[in-house]
Design a protein around this nucleic acid. Sequence first.
DNA 1: TTTCATGTAACAATAATAGTTACGAAGCGC
DNA 2: GCGCTTCGTAACTATTATTGTTACATGAAA
Lengths: 147, 147
Amino acid sequence: MKRNSRLSAVLHALMHMAERETPMTSDDLALCLDTNAVVVRRTMAGLRDAGIVQSGRGHGGGWHFARPLAEISLLDIYNALGEPIVFQIGPATEMPGCVVEQSVNRVIGDALKDAEAILMARFAGTTLADLAADFRVAAKLCRADTG
Amino acid sequence: MKRNSRLSAVLHALMHMAERETPMTSDDLALCLDTNAVVVRRTMAGLRDAGIVQSGRGHGGGWHFARPLAEISLLDIYNALGEPIVFQIGPATEMPGCVVEQSVNRVIGDALKDAEAILMARFAGTTLADLAADFRVAAKLCRADTG
DNA sequence: TTTCATGTAACAATAATAGTTACGAAGCGC
DNA sequence: GCGCTTCGTAACTATTATTGTTACATGAAA
Ligand code: FES
Ligand code: FES
């Protein structure tokens, strides 16, 4: 099955934005992400509604951050993308009268809930500033290595 | 997005089988799961290949367990279903030359790996016997409750 | 007022999953 | 052996979710 890499993609876009002073247009970002400008707008719309980024129209318009990178966690972004479902697997549709189904769903549901909590905690503990710092170090090492 | 409830469904089927002495046909199980016999065979084929259940043809044929319920963990079943991917979200396709992508993928990948480990541990620690016991207790309570 | 850029709806393309049909092979009972 | 049952599997269709594309309206700057 195919994984949804929207979170990954949007983080990539945000890192690009973090490296710039001026706003980036949807077309710029679409080029970076190898996709379409409308897709970028669709995705970024969630972040804008969540107050993470802001968009401007007309000349000099585009996307820029609404607050410091250190105050934006991966969890914020994850939530803003509007994908509350983490797991591919999940319990079946509720069958109120069926005890078997309920037992199965409880066992699976509990396990998924635990795993999800771990994941959300990790996301909450990482900010965009952390991520930017991480890749800048890597980039510097890489550059030093190459020559 | 829609969740994949194959694990849930197959557990339901196995609980039905656990309640029976004689093998159950694909048609029987399809009726229980409200689906098609071919779909049941497709799903159960994985379990058969993993040595969890056995199938027999002709009169009196059908599906039955290959070993005691206490020796079958949810992890066994999960693996037998051939769905190694747990999460809907995931890193983007590898871009070897791109440091940003690598950083993003590492952060997300690590978090996912931790969460997945928790989930797998839970699955490994639960057997079909546990599940059967759980629902039998619930069923008894329910029956007592109803009268 | 022209140009640039987002906002959004509508539609097409793509892909994954599930369901269906059809037919062959294996096993049991007579 | 014969016929019935049941799995095994391929091929096809249906459904659904996601993504990509086109088109046009709106707002802002030069
Ligand atoms: S429908 Fe409830 S046990 Fe199968
Ligand atoms: S392509 Fe955007 S940083 Fe690598």
